[in-house]
Design a protein around this nucleic acid. Sequence first.
DNA 1: TCTATACAGGACAAGATAGGTCCTGTTAGA
DNA 2: TCTAACAGGACCTATCTTGTCCTGTATAGA
Lengths: 158, 158
Amino acid sequence: MLRLSKLTDYAVVVLIRLAQGEAVQTVPLIAQSTGVPEPTVAKVLKSLSASGLVLSSRGARGGYRLAQTLFDIPVSRVIAAIDGPIALTACVEGTGGGCSSESHCPGSGRWNLVNQAIHTALSRINLGDMALISLPNGLQTDFHPSDRRAPAFENREL
Amino acid sequence: MLRLSKLTDYAVVVLIRLAQGEAVQTVPLIAQSTGVPEPTVAKVLKSLSASGLVLSSRGARGGYRLAQTLFDIPVSRVIAAIDGPIALTACVEGTGGGCSSESHCPGSGRWNLVNQAIHTALSRINLGDMALISLPNGLQTDFHPSDRRAPAFENREL
DNA sequence: TCTATACAGGACAAGATAGGTCCTGTTAGA
DNA sequence: TCTAACAGGACCTATCTTGTCCTGTATAGA
């Protein structure tokens, strides 16, 4: 199975949660509302913060908030933030090589075509699309108004 | 990193090898020419045989051969043969559910959009394309003539 | 200035999974 | 009948992911 780490799934849940309710939310609050364990939420948010997807503020009244709207975050960025560069195998340009059977390998660029196709596909889907699909209708109005660009999803084509 | 199993990579190597040289090839022969360990080649070929991508014949003079040309095998079929259905997470329709935090999960169909996009992308790339990219020019004429559909790759668009 | 709050950045252990090996049985050609 | 070669498992090991914990640092408010 083509596998994505659970942490990436959690990251999507957390980001969608951040788009709801208070602008700035703490780790315990997010953990409680999403059901994801608190240390795991913290871990995910650290990665997202390092990638610039969320902004953090320390100290009392601190917490995390989205750096941009869900519709501006392609799925590929979330995956890259948590799992690193999107690449199907170790035999891919840019990952530094080191394949033990490189001499027998009929070409190091074999999977590049596939990687490009997947990256393109993932760049076309944003978290706003995913949130709209996953949320019950009643909750869709719970988005922070500034996080909603009306035409973005209605005329969106995959 | 969005990871594909090594076995899938081996499967592609083995399938491309099967398109070269003798029509029927044994496991030891393929292992020798590809550098992949013999037991691993056997394991991969069993899976490919079960999926109908290769045909097996037992007994002396037996071995494996391609069931169809490389250009008729999309990458998605190889991945499905080795790794099972293409699905990014456990929370996907058709995998039977069982997610422990399903009650908190804001929508089980969240990743379906992404899965569909990836599946579409992978269905558009076939092993013939990959073989042409990965092989040195001198070896490209080493394909079995019947495995080559001239217009297929020259005008192919991703 | 002090204290409580909350993130930052690691280290680490347990469980799951993939990768690889081996064994026995079955089939088919010589 | 013998040998070559695939079929179908079981099984072990190494690696990776997941989840947890600890210590340090920054900030707001009293």
